[in-house]
Design a protein around this nucleic acid. Sequence first.
RNA 1: CGGAGCGUGGCGCAGCCUGGUAGCGCACCUGUUUUGGGUACAGGGGGUCGCAGGUUCGAAUCCUGCCGCUCCGACCA
Length: 447
Amino acid sequence: MRLSRYFLPVQKETPAEAEIVSHRLMLRGGMIRQASAGIYSWLPLGYKVLRKIENIVHEEQQRAGAIPVLMPTIQSADLWRESGRYDDYGAEMLRIEDRQGREMLYGPTNEEQITEIAGAGIRSYRDLPRILYHIQWKFRDEVRPRFGVMRGREFLMKDAYSFDLDKEGARHSYNRMFVSYLRTFERMGLKAVPMRADSGPIGGDMTHEFLILAETGESGVFLDRDLAELSLGEGAIDWEDAPALQAIVDRWTASYARTDETHEEAVFEAEIPENRRLTARGIEVGHIFYFGSKYSKPLNATVMGPGGEAVPFESGSYGIGVSRLAGAIIEASHDDKGIIWPEAVAPFEVAVINLRQGDEAADAACESLYATLTARGLDVLYDDRDERAGAKFATIDLIGIPWKLVVGPRGLKEGVVELVSRRTGETQNLAPDDAINRLADIYGRAS
RNA sequence: CGGAGCGUGGCGCAGCCUGGUAGCGCACCUGUUUUGGGUACAGGGGGUCGCAGGUUCGAAUCCUGCCGCUCCGACCA
């Protein structure tokens, strides 16, 4: 993409309403524009990031065995009456009426809907287990939306729902999602720690929140420092192997990790030696829980069990805040110049900066790099604006492109361009071809 | 929902108290200049001052009502 033809309304000055860094940077970087309280348009740059995050979630969900569907944003009130939640949900649910006066609602979540779908489509225990998920816009009429996309009223969420015959099966499904979440967040360059959540009326140990550590997080977190160092790595996972999955879950839940909601200082101090006690802030980006037959019973969603009896599903639901992640990643990865995108979610993989637009040699070299990098499958932003070098650097650093390829007459005389890392600032002087190969290597593109 | 505050060009703000031709910086357009980390100068375009009503010869400014938005607290992916 040539920046001179892109839609990137960056701003020098910080909009007055933005209080936290991700919100400021998303506004300044031209990623989003507020439409009304807690509701945002995603401009091209923000939309690219959102799609990248979404794709990683899709890939990892399906890898773990979940099946994508897409349910509507607008739901009928009837289903919610059956589950009893139409009245329980309160003012957070946006209720609307169609022209016939039928009561509808903009879905804040989809347990009822998916349970109805599963109930109609799954008849026999032989069809179990199943995990269905979708990534869809939700609306919750928050009392107080804030922090940009971190707590919007309209937000993009991945929600998965598992269907099993019994609790043992449900645990396997739960563990699939648990491990899938570890992979998902790790791929995005995030350090996400599963923490025991408040299990509410259901009880039991099968509910966890996944929080990424960031200074501006909304929740206080208390954990064993060692947990924050765990890494799943790239190794293959056998998703059908229940004991193996359980072993991974056990590793991540072996030690103390809780938010301020469930924190017990005495237990923390008893279990964790002082030098390993980590007190920090965290942002919740995922939440998984097992809820048994909470919805299948009232909605009468059953399968025929092996004994010929109708059995309500054993279910769980598993959420990831997809749009929130865009903000959360920025909270976890920025500096005073702007965003620092992890490579996996960067809106562009490399920026070519022409230091002297209009200089014959520089223009030719940039055009050539742009064409070759693109042909090699890299997503390139070529800053071909008629701006001074400083302005280009400021823009590209603000929007957080992980790698800059800096091209100017001086370097070209020596036969080199500069490859600069956004994260470390480290600069390498390389021949253009070497720089291309290096970038292809970084992003795993075949040569 | 309780508390506080703000709505003046795309963004950041002044003007309001004490009514009298709507202003500054950034951004944008034109020209010159400059060219390796947000050049400099000159010229220029753009605003029914959130909406409605009222007071007044005259309202961004005073009064009333409404709407929108933000921040702090209790709840949430």
